[in-house]
Measured scan of single mutants.
Amino acid sequence: GIPATNLSRVAGLEKQLAIELKVKQGAENMIQTYSNGSTKDRKLLLTAQQMLQDSKTKIDIIRMQLRRALQ
Protein backbone atom coordinates (compact mmCIF):
# COMPACT_ATOMS: atom_id res chain seq x y z
CA GLY A 1 0.00 0.00 0.00
CA ILE A 2 0.83 3.69 0.01
CA PRO A 3 2.27 5.17 3.24
CA ALA A 4 -0.05 7.52 5.17
CA THR A 5 2.38 10.43 4.77
CA ASN A 6 2.10 10.04 1.01
CA LEU A 7 -1.69 9.94 1.19
CA SER A 8 -1.89 13.33 2.92
CA ARG A 9 0.65 14.64 0.40
CA VAL A 10 -1.50 13.32 -2.44
CA ALA A 11 -4.57 15.05 -0.97
CA GLY A 12 -2.65 18.33 -0.83
CA LEU A 13 -1.38 17.92 -4.38
CA GLU A 14 -4.88 17.16 -5.63
CA LYS A 15 -6.14 20.35 -3.97
CA GLN A 16 -3.33 22.33 -5.66
CA LEU A 17 -4.11 20.67 -8.97
CA ALA A 18 -7.80 21.62 -8.72
CA ILE A 19 -6.83 25.25 -8.06
CA GLU A 20 -4.37 25.34 -10.97
CA LEU A 21 -6.96 23.83 -13.32
CA LYS A 22 -9.33 26.69 -12.37
CA VAL A 23 -6.55 29.25 -12.98
CA LYS A 24 -5.88 27.64 -16.39
CA GLN A 25 -9.60 27.77 -17.23
CA GLY A 26 -9.75 31.43 -16.20
CA ALA A 27 -6.71 32.29 -18.29
CA GLU A 28 -8.20 30.51 -21.31
CA ASN A 29 -11.45 32.47 -20.86
CA MET A 30 -9.50 35.74 -20.62
CA ILE A 31 -7.57 34.90 -23.79
CA GLN A 32 -10.84 34.27 -25.62
CA THR A 33 -12.26 37.55 -24.33
CA TYR A 34 -9.25 39.71 -25.17
CA SER A 35 -8.10 38.10 -28.42
CA ASN A 36 -10.87 39.80 -30.40
CA GLY A 37 -10.63 43.01 -28.41
CA SER A 38 -8.98 46.35 -29.10
CA THR A 39 -5.26 47.14 -28.92
CA LYS A 40 -5.55 48.29 -25.30
CA ASP A 41 -6.51 44.69 -24.52
CA ARG A 42 -3.18 43.50 -25.97
CA LYS A 43 -1.40 43.88 -22.63
CA LEU A 44 -4.17 41.95 -20.86
CA LEU A 45 -4.01 39.28 -23.56
CA LEU A 46 -0.24 38.90 -23.06
CA THR A 47 -0.76 38.70 -19.28
CA ALA A 48 -3.43 36.02 -19.74
CA GLN A 49 -1.18 34.04 -22.10
CA GLN A 50 1.66 34.21 -19.56
CA MET A 51 -0.74 33.07 -16.81
CA LEU A 52 -1.85 30.15 -18.97
CA GLN A 53 1.75 29.13 -19.65
CA ASP A 54 2.68 29.31 -15.94
CA SER A 55 -0.43 27.38 -15.02
CA LYS A 56 0.30 24.60 -17.53
CA THR A 57 3.84 24.31 -16.16
CA LYS A 58 2.55 24.09 -12.56
CA ILE A 59 -0.04 21.49 -13.57
CA ASP A 60 2.69 19.36 -15.18
CA ILE A 61 4.86 19.63 -12.06
CA ILE A 62 1.97 18.76 -9.72
CA ARG A 63 1.01 15.75 -11.87
CA MET A 64 4.62 14.58 -11.80
CA GLN A 65 4.71 14.92 -7.99
CA LEU A 66 1.42 13.02 -7.75
CA ARG A 67 2.79 10.16 -9.84
CA ARG A 68 5.86 9.99 -7.60
CA ALA A 69 3.78 10.04 -4.41
CA LEU A 70 1.57 7.23 -5.71
CA GLN A 71 4.43 4.90 -6.65
Results as ranks from 00 to 15, higher is better:
residue 19 I to E: 12
residue 12 G to E: 15
residue 48 A to D: 00
residue 67 R to E: 11
residue 24 K to G: 01
residue 38 S to K: 09
residue 63 R to Q: 09
residue 27 A to R: 02
residue 26 G to K: 15
residue 58 K to L: 04
residue 8 S to P: 07
residue 69 A to T: 04
residue 36 N to W: 04
residue 66 L to K: 01
residue 14 E to D: 02
residue 63 R to N: 09
residue 23 V to R: 15
residue 15 K to W: 07
residue 8 S to L: 09
residue 21 L to M: 11
residue 58 K to M: 07
residue 25 Q to R: 08
residue 6 N to A: 08
residue 47 T to R: 13
residue 6 N to W: 02
residue 13 L to P: 00
residue 31 I to P: 00
residue 59 I to G: 00
residue 65 Q to L: 13
residue 7 L to Q: 08
residue 46 L to K: 08
residue 11 A to M: 08
residue 31 I to A: 02
residue 53 Q to V: 09
residue 39 T to H: 09
residue 40 K to S: 10
residue 41 D to A: 03
residue 65 Q to H: 06
residue 17 L to R: 00
residue 26 G to D: 15
residue 22 K to P: 00
residue 38 S to P: 06
residue 14 E to G: 04
residue 42 R to F: 13
residue 10 V to M: 04
residue 69 A to N: 03
residue 30 M to L: 12
residue 66 L to N: 00
residue 51 M to N: 03
residue 17 L to G: 00
residue 3 P to Y: 02
residue 52 L to C: 04
residue 31 I to N: 01
residue 50 Q to V: 08
residue 26 G to I: 15
residue 6 N to D: 10
residue 35 S to I: 13
residue 12 G to A: 15
residue 52 L to H: 02
residue 41 D to F: 04
residue 27 A to E: 00
residue 54 D to Q: 06
residue 48 A to T: 02
residue 70 L to N: 04
residue 71 Q to T: 08
residue 16 Q to A: 11
residue 34 Y to L: 15
residue 7 L to D: 10
residue 43 K to W: 06
residue 41 D to T: 03
residue 6 N to E: 10
residue 37 G to L: 04
residue 14 E to A: 14
residue 6 N to M: 05
residue 42 R to N: 14
residue 43 K to R: 08
residue 40 K to F: 13
residue 40 K to R: 07
residue 52 L to N: 00
residue 62 I to P: 00
residue 35 S to R: 09
residue 25 Q to T: 06
residue 10 V to Y: 05
residue 57 T to H: 13
residue 59 I to F: 00
residue 36 N to C: 15
residue 30 M to T: 04
residue 39 T to A: 10
residue 6 N to C: 15
residue 50 Q to H: 05
residue 37 G to T: 05
residue 46 L to D: 04
residue 56 K to V: 10
residue 25 Q to W: 07
residue 42 R to I: 14
residue 37 G to P: 07
residue 47 T to A: 14
residue 23 V to I: 12
residue 23 V to N: 12
residue 40 K to Q: 12
residue 30 M to Y: 04
residue 63 R to F: 08
residue 32 Q to E: 14
residue 46 L to E: 14
residue 63 R to Y: 12
residue 62 I to V: 02
residue 16 Q to S: 05
residue 39 T to F: 06
residue 69 A to Q: 04
residue 65 Q to V: 03
residue 11 A to W: 05
residue 42 R to K: 12
residue 26 G to L: 15
residue 2 I to E: 07
residue 19 I to S: 07
residue 68 R to S: 11
residue 62 I to A: 00
residue 68 R to Y: 10
residue 67 R to P: 01
residue 50 Q to M: 10
residue 57 T to F: 07
residue 46 L to Y: 07
residue 27 A to W: 15
residue 1 G to H: 12
residue 13 L to R: 00
residue 68 R to K: 14
residue 3 P to E: 11
residue 52 L to D: 01
residue 65 Q to S: 03
residue 2 I to Y: 11
residue 56 K to L: 15
residue 34 Y to G: 03
residue 16 Q to L: 11
residue 38 S to N: 10
residue 21 L to P: 00
residue 44 L to C: 11
residue 55 S to H: 01
residue 37 G to H: 04
residue 45 L to K: 01
residue 54 D to E: 11
residue 31 I to Q: 01
residue 5 T to G: 12
residue 15 K to Y: 07
residue 58 K to Y: 02
residue 63 R to S: 05
residue 8 S to G: 10
residue 39 T to S: 10
residue 70 L to E: 05
residue 60 D to G: 10
residue 30 M to R: 03
residue 28 E to Y: 06
residue 52 L to S: 01
residue 25 Q to N: 05
residue 1 G to K: 14
residue 1 G to P: 12
residue 60 D to L: 11
residue 29 N to Y: 11
residue 2 I to M: 10
residue 22 K to R: 10
residue 4 A to L: 02
residue 27 A to I: 15
residue 32 Q to S: 09
residue 35 S to N: 13
residue 22 K to C: 14
residue 53 Q to I: 09
residue 26 G to E: 15
residue 27 A to S: 02
residue 37 G to K: 06
residue 47 T to E: 14
residue 14 E to M: 15
residue 69 A to D: 03
residue 15 K to P: 00
residue 63 R to W: 08
residue 35 S to H: 08
residue 21 L to D: 01
residue 44 L to T: 03
residue 43 K to V: 11
residue 4 A to I: 12
residue 33 T to L: 15
residue 22 K to W: 06
residue 8 S to H: 09
residue 61 I to H: 11
residue 57 T to R: 15
residue 17 L to C: 08
residue 41 D to R: 02
residue 71 Q to A: 09
residue 44 L to S: 04
residue 23 V to S: 06
residue 50 Q to Y: 04
residue 65 Q to T: 02
residue 54 D to V: 09
residue 44 L to E: 05
residue 4 A to C: 15
residue 18 A to H: 05
residue 62 I to H: 00
residue 9 R to W: 12
residue 33 T to G: 06
residue 31 I to S: 01
residue 67 R to K: 08
residue 70 L to A: 07
residue 31 I to H: 01
residue 55 S to P: 00
residue 19 I to V: 06
residue 43 K to P: 06
residue 14 E to H: 11
residue 24 K to F: 08
residue 57 T to V: 10
residue 67 R to M: 09
residue 60 D to F: 13
residue 55 S to N: 01
residue 34 Y to D: 02
residue 29 N to W: 13
residue 18 A to F: 08
residue 4 A to M: 03
residue 3 P to S: 06
residue 51 M to F: 04
residue 64 M to V: 08
residue 13 L to H: 01
residue 27 A to V: 13
residue 45 L to I: 03
residue 64 M to H: 08
residue 27 A to K: 01
residue 26 G to Q: 15
residue 39 T to P: 07
residue 37 G to V: 05
residue 25 Q to E: 12
residue 40 K to N: 09
residue 11 A to N: 05
residue 44 L to H: 05
residue 1 G to Y: 06
residue 37 G to N: 09
residue 71 Q to M: 11
residue 6 N to L: 07
residue 49 Q to V: 13
residue 20 E to Q: 14
residue 33 T to S: 12
residue 51 M to D: 03
residue 43 K to M: 08
residue 45 L to N: 01
residue 45 L to H: 02
residue 65 Q to M: 11
residue 70 L to W: 05
residue 63 R to A: 04
residue 23 V to A: 07
residue 20 E to R: 01
residue 51 M to K: 04
residue 70 L to P: 02
residue 3 P to D: 11
residue 34 Y to P: 02
residue 52 L to V: 03
residue 25 Q to K: 10
residue 20 E to F: 08
residue 9 R to E: 13
residue 65 Q to C: 09
residue 68 R to L: 15
residue 3 P to W: 02
residue 64 M to Y: 07
residue 5 T to K: 12
residue 25 Q to G: 02
residue 51 M to T: 06
residue 18 A to W: 07
residue 44 L to R: 07
residue 38 S to A: 11
residue 27 A to T: 03
residue 38 S to I: 10
residue 69 A to Y: 07
residue 15 K to F: 07
residue 4 A to N: 13
residue 46 L to W: 06
residue 62 I to S: 00
residue 43 K to G: 09
residue 7 L to W: 02
residue 28 E to C: 09
residue 55 S to C: 13
residue 57 T to L: 12
residue 64 M to F: 06
residue 55 S to A: 13
residue 56 K to G: 03
residue 58 K to D: 01
residue 45 L to A: 02
residue 5 T to L: 13
residue 14 E to S: 07
residue 70 L to T: 05
residue 66 L to M: 04
residue 52 L to P: 00
residue 33 T to I: 15
residue 7 L to P: 13
residue 18 A to V: 06
residue 32 Q to N: 12
residue 18 A to R: 08
residue 49 Q to H: 07
residue 67 R to A: 13
residue 16 Q to R: 10
residue 21 L to A: 02
residue 43 K to S: 11
residue 53 Q to R: 11
residue 62 I to F: 02
residue 71 Q to F: 05
residue 3 P to K: 08
residue 32 Q to P: 02
residue 26 G to S: 13
residue 44 L to G: 06
residue 67 R to G: 06
residue 43 K to D: 12
residue 31 I to G: 01
residue 65 Q to E: 12
residue 28 E to K: 04
residue 8 S to R: 07
residue 20 E to T: 04
residue 68 R to M: 13
residue 26 G to P: 00
residue 64 M to N: 10
residue 69 A to E: 10
residue 58 K to E: 02
residue 21 L to H: 02
residue 32 Q to T: 08
residue 69 A to L: 15
residue 18 A to S: 06
residue 18 A to L: 09
residue 49 Q to M: 11
residue 66 L to T: 01
residue 30 M to G: 01
residue 45 L to S: 01
residue 13 L to Q: 00
residue 5 T to P: 10
residue 53 Q to T: 08
residue 24 K to V: 05
residue 62 I to Y: 02
residue 66 L to A: 01
residue 52 L to I: 02
residue 55 S to W: 01
residue 42 R to L: 13
residue 13 L to D: 00
residue 58 K to S: 03
residue 68 R to I: 14
residue 33 T to Q: 15
